[in-house]
Design a protein around this nucleic acid. Structure first.
Lengths: 220, 220
DNA sequence: TTAAAATTTTAGACAAAACTAAAATATATA
DNA sequence: TATATATTTTAGTTTTGTCTAAAATTTTAA
């Protein structure tokens, strides 16, 4: 099939298209995403283009072909299912799952991933609240808004996920007992810096900055 | 740590030492085991010797150092734990587990394997009846003999494992409902070709050749 | 015990995936 | 619009793991 390096390039390109309007991705953005040189990226682009996973025009940029996109989504599916396994079955913390899932996602076995999905009860979201594509590559859509955009105070909210996945951010949220599924209430909002005083579950109240609240997703 | 290729060489060398009296392994036997050329083996031996996983004398042969052996046993541990997971949790047949475990055993995470062991209930044997080394590399010993060596007829025996792991052999055993844990009784033995008439569980009796009975292990 | 056969090693080459340095092209700005 | 800056590509190297062919060594057997 494809090498791990090839798969990592497809994932990176897919990820970049997710948070940009354009479907066309620059060499540099891929290099930045993977922490590699532009020259290496150009080399790999050629290989993936030859394998018709990318369409590519020199000096202009690349985009995923239908086949390339399908493959990228299946990698995301595998990654997120493994994260659920590590978290739900093996008791990993949500900040520990990513690195191991990054390895597990490259295991080649269609049967494995379908059986794993079944074993986990066909989960729709991973431990960070990100949607898991199904066998056909379809994502479950759900309404979610940034905690920073919520105006009402006193209303009970449910945390759904995060927008940043860095381990230190997740560890911080953990330390204040915030993770997907937890109930929280905005007690008050500071007008000048948009910081929030929160009640998390039934615990003591806590203060979080806007920088943090922007990256927390809740049910609207 | 070590590359997959390096790990595969260590495993191969360990495997060869298991069914030979000598701890010293020839270049050719490694090449045969891995389906590669002797020249490639010589190259890799040098690398592994530099990393003090092997001790090596030109034209004479190699043996695993204590460190190399430890690593090989940990790979066996990972392989067999994954086989248990695939078989017990994901419902893989015992002839399907090997190839996927071959990939999974290279995943690098100490936590993963210790948690997996715990999740599986610290199994002592894999789906083929092979012992799983514990965290310290120790195997559980148990008395087991080849079915071909059993003389008494009419005695209830318990199958413990197999000596061959080829998928077609396992599929054949499956088709006659033989697998570890199953109760069987020798009804009679043909003197001239050592073939056995067996009762397996409560099913119809069946005839197996000595070639097959030699590779079936039972509680003595 | 010496010649033939088998094994092992060396030498040289190749593909994959990365790098650096330099050249080519595109974009931004004065 | 012309030039400076940024991006992209090319060219040439490196490392890993493989290969084939040939040389060196060991083993087998006449």
């Amino acid at each position: 099939m494809f090498t791990q390096a090839e798969e990592n390039y497809l994932k990176a390109i897919y990820k970049i298209t997710q948070h940009t309007a354009d479907q066309t991705v620059s060499t540099k953005s891929i290099a930045d995403e993977l922490g590699t040189s532009s020259a290496s990226v150009t080399d790999m682009i050629k290989k993936l283009t030859d394998k018709s996973l990318l369409s590519y025009e020199k000096y202009y940029g690349v985009s995923l072909t239908r086949e390339g996109q399908k493959l990228a989504i299946m990698l995301l599916r595998k990654h997120r299912l493994w994260e659920v396994f590590l978290h739900d079955k093996l008791g990993f913390n949500w900040d520990e799952v990513h690195d191991v899932a990054e390895q597990l996602e490259h295991i080649q076995s269609y049967l494995l991933i379908e059986r794993l999905d079944e074993f986990l009860g066909y989960p729709k979201f991973d431990p960070h609240g990100d949607p898991i594509p199904n066998e056909n590559g379809n994502f479950t859509y759900r309404n979610q808004v940034s905690l920073s955009s919520v105006q009402e105070t006193g209303k009970k909210l449910t945390m759904l996920g995060v927008r940043r996945h860095q381990a230190d951010f997740l560890k911080y949220l953990d330390s204040i007992h915030l993770k997907p599924g937890v109930q929280l209430t905005i007690l008050s909002k500071q007008a000048y810096d948009q910081s929030l005083r929160l009640q998390i579950a039934d615990r003591d109240e806590i203060l979080i900055t806007q920088q943090v609240s922007q990256d927390i997703l809740v049910k609207p």
